[in-house]
């Protein structure tokens, strides 16, 4: 069992979670909880693969996927921002809608064969850094490198720019933001759209880079839900989101690689001697998501973790107090 290999694979598959989590952080920072990440990711994965087959160009596939997922997200924005309906119910329906659309439009795509994929390459110089170079900069997909850039950019945008300040204001105290002349509705629509674009990018990262192909709902396999859990774990912070995403990506691979060695840390490796234990490992990411979501559903705890104060609440102009 080679930890460098596990982390290398973990960074690649963790990039999917990273994009989805960053997108959800931006949407939630504006005060809109969108549980439709899984559905938007499926839309993204299907669109990216399908358009790439049709055009032969994965970049066009990628951009179309982001746009389509972004458009789908606007259903949620319309229902929750304009119609001021319950965000949880609308988000869950968005997951069903996204899954349904992608399954229908993706019919037959599973046997479409191979397509041109996102390029993999090493970053000169950086790849020579011992250990870290192998993990982060060796033969990774271009999307993995895009992920590295997104982490500080998202952090800087949220915390140190004027639009980021507006974003936070809308999520924390929308009526005050409104009084300052910020258009709360428009910004919420915008960040739900951005969240959709990121979810589409996450889906495209699966179907064009990490696990090329379209395998109906198994393509995402519940990763959209893990991303929603990771947002709470990350306390709405991009750097912590990156940490969690890469850790969960590495866990996917660790579950398999840990079955190989005879001993772990000098004792008999239980995962070698008892294959049934691998069931337990596979459960962990989902169990984590359930636990985090249960904890995060308690308002007091959520506040203490740093959740945007107006998260989940529709903004109704002229209503007092909020």
């Amino acid at each position: 069992m080679d930890f460098v290999v596990i982390l290398q694979a973990g960074v690649a598959s963790g990039t999917v979670l990273l994009f989805a989590t960053l997108g959800e952080i931006l949407a939630e920072r504006s005060g809109v909880l969108n549980l439709g990440v899984e559905g938007m990711m499926l839309i993204g994965a299907m669109t990216a693969f399908s358009v790439t087959i049709a055009t032969g160009n994965p970049w066009i596939g990628l951009l179309t996927a982001m746009l389509f997922a972004g458009l789908i997200s606007q259903i949620h924005a319309f229902i929750t921002v304009t119609l001021q309906a319950d965000q949880v119910v609308s988000g869950l329906s968005l997951t069903l809608v996204g899954a349904g659309i992608s399954l229908v439009l993706g019919e037959g795509l599973s046997k479409a064969g191979t397509v041109s994929l996102m390029p993999n390459f090493s970053i000169p110089l950086l790849v020579q850094i011992p250990v870290l170079g192998d993990i982060f900069f060796k033969e990774q997909s271009v999307l993995v490198y895009v992920g590295y850039l997104m982490i500080p950019l998202a952090w800087y945008y949220i915390n140190h720019t004027r639009p980021g300040l507006h974003l936070r204001a809308v999520g924390e105290y929308p009526s005050a933001a409104d009084a300052l002349g910020i258009n709360v509705y428009r910004l919420r629509y915008f960040y739900v759209f951005i969240g959709g674009i990121f979810a589409g990018l996450a889906g495209a990262t699966i179907s064009l880079a990490v696990s090329p192909g379209w395998f109906s709902e198994l393509t995402t396999g519940g990763q959209g839900w893990i991303a929603i859990g990771l947002v709470i774990f990350a306390q709405w912070d991009p750097f912590r989101a990156a940490l969690g995403s890469y850790a969960f990506g590495a866990l996917r691979r660790l579950i398999l690689d840990i079955q190989a060695p005879l001993t772990l840390f000098g004792v008999d490796n239980p995962f070698y001697y008892n294959p049934y234990l691998s069931f337990f490992l596979q459960m962990l990411p989902y169990a984590f998501t359930v636990i985090v979501l249960v904890i995060g559903s308690r308002e007091a705890i959520r506040k203490r973790l740093g959740a945007p104060a107006a998260l989940g609440e529709p903004y109704i102009r002229g209503e007092r107090g909020k």
Binding site: D2, A9, I206, S211, G213, L218, R253, L256, A260
Partner: peptide, 14 residues
Amino acid sequence: PVIEKEAAASLFDA
């Protein structure tokens, strides 16, 4: 298919 690919990669890499 996704897990199958990961497991195949795990075996090849080992």
